[in-house]
Amino acid sequence: MFRNASVQILKQFVRHGTTDASFILERSINKVQLLGRVGQDPVMRQVEGRNPVTIFSMATNEMWRSGGEGVGTGADTGDVSQKTTWHRISVFKPGLRDVAYQYVKKGTRVLVEGKLDYGEYVDKNNVRRQATTIIADNIVFLSDNVRDRP
């Protein structure tokens, strides 16, 4: 077993071209897929010295049935509850950023693929706040707007 681990470490050194044991790169995954509706028209912001970013909000819904006599029996009884979760979407990729700014509109149904990003900012009252953002790598348009719903 020890020999097996040594071989794996040696393969990592060869793969990454380094002999520094503290610099072994691990593969990891940070991937998010959201399917929902856009909550506001996008805005494009640019901080001095940085590339512009398109930002919009997106809502996803979770629904479940609670209570009622038929729970666990497959019967459609009980109350339906729903929880809406809001997400902040940021688009940095130049082509996608411009397409999102031009075509994403409030009510549009979209599939967003990207990664989670956690950060902080200082609000206008000088209070430090934490923010969770989805950095979009891909956006799939599923409808033009809310009026497309049956």
Rank of each mutant, 00 (worst) to 15 (best):
D41A: 00
D76I: 15
V140M: 11
V80R: 12
E26C: 15
A131Q: 12
Y118P: 05
D144S: 12
M44S: 09
Y103C: 00
G17P: 00
Q102T: 04
I24P: 00
R88Y: 00
P42V: 03
T108M: 02
V112F: 01
G68F: 06
F92E: 02
T133F: 04
H16N: 15
K124E: 09
R109P: 04
K115E: 13
T133C: 05
S143M: 13
F141L: 10
P150K: 09
E69Y: 12
D137E: 14
S90G: 08
V7L: 15
A136L: 03
Q82R: 14
G72E: 05
A136Y: 04
V14R: 12
G67C: 03
R15H: 15
S6V: 09
G72I: 02
K105F: 03
L34E: 05
G68A: 05
I24E: 06
Q82S: 12
T54N: 01
G114Y: 01
F141N: 07
N51W: 12
G39V: 05
S81R: 13
R37I: 07
D98H: 12
R50T: 14
D41W: 01
K106A: 03
V91G: 02
V80I: 14
A59L: 06
G68E: 07
S66M: 13
R129M: 11
E113N: 12
F141A: 07
D98L: 07
Q12T: 12
I139C: 01
I134S: 00
N125W: 11
V47T: 14
R37E: 09
L96G: 03
D123V: 10
T54C: 06
S66T: 13
I134L: 06
L10F: 09
T54R: 04
N30Y: 05
L34H: 04
I9E: 04
F23M: 15
G114E: 01
L10R: 02
R129C: 09
Q82E: 15
T73K: 08
K93A: 06
S90A: 14
T108V: 06
S81I: 15
Y103D: 00
G36V: 00
K83F: 11
W64N: 05
L142D: 08
V99W: 03
Q82C: 14
G95N: 11
V53A: 01
N51Q: 13
T85V: 11
R37F: 10
P42C: 04
D148S: 15
I89T: 00
